[in-house]
Amino acid sequence: MNKIPSALNLGIRRGGLEIRQFARQRESVVFTLLFPVILLAIFGSVFKDTIAPGVTFSQYFVAGMIASGLVNTGFQALAITIPMERDVGGLKRLRGTPMPASSYFIGKAILIAVSMIIQIALLFGFGLLFFGIEMPTELSKWLTFTWLVLLGSACSTALGIAFSIVPKSGRGASAVVSPIVIILQFFSGVFFVFTQLPTWMQQLAAIFPLKWLTQGMRSVFLPDSFAAQEVAKSWETGRTFQILVLWLVIGIFFSVRKFKWDRD
């Protein structure tokens, strides 16, 4: 038996390679990383009112921006770029090497996590400097924030890889994936106050992880008094955790079982 490198070791190396490739696509780097800041600037300038005592719309919106940043950077980006990699034969080439699928997935997860951390740092920086965003002060909120980002990023990565089997070609991938993400963002209370949406929209959104990520982020960035205004009159932190784990498992299952390395 030859001693081949472990899947984790190769996964970490792939992560480094993925980051290097991403960093060289300058336009895409700037746009991806600054997108939440741009949206915050637009919405922060349009909606200047407070939605509850001491809660500005910008403050509400930061929660939505981080949550949907997770979906854009992971799910949307992977479900579009993986079919492109497949189209140009890159995945088939990898399939022919001793590198296992799990290493490829780990590499993607590292790329998404790193990209998310930079995005959040930029959003915090601009938010603090220009939009009067208030940061949580309790340690418990930062702990919630940390697991939400890590679990959300993993969940989004796994679902993005799983969904990459749906678009038939890289060319058409964006047309399939983007509308789903945009609709999900509207339904999940990213752009509007969730409780003001029609009930059926709320219920539909509650099936998918974005609603829970957004609500979880609100529990971090809004005062606890705001919890009473949520649909369930609470932050539902435990349930958020369960639902994200469930979607993570679903994503991993389909990624492992159904991943397509080749066009046909």
Partner: peptide, 15 residues
């Protein structure tokens, strides 16, 4: 283990 011992040069890859 098997793929460690073979090499494959496919038709045009552009990745």
């Amino acid at each position: 283990q098997w793929r460690d011992r073979i090499g494959i040069v496919l038709q045009s890859a552009a990745d």
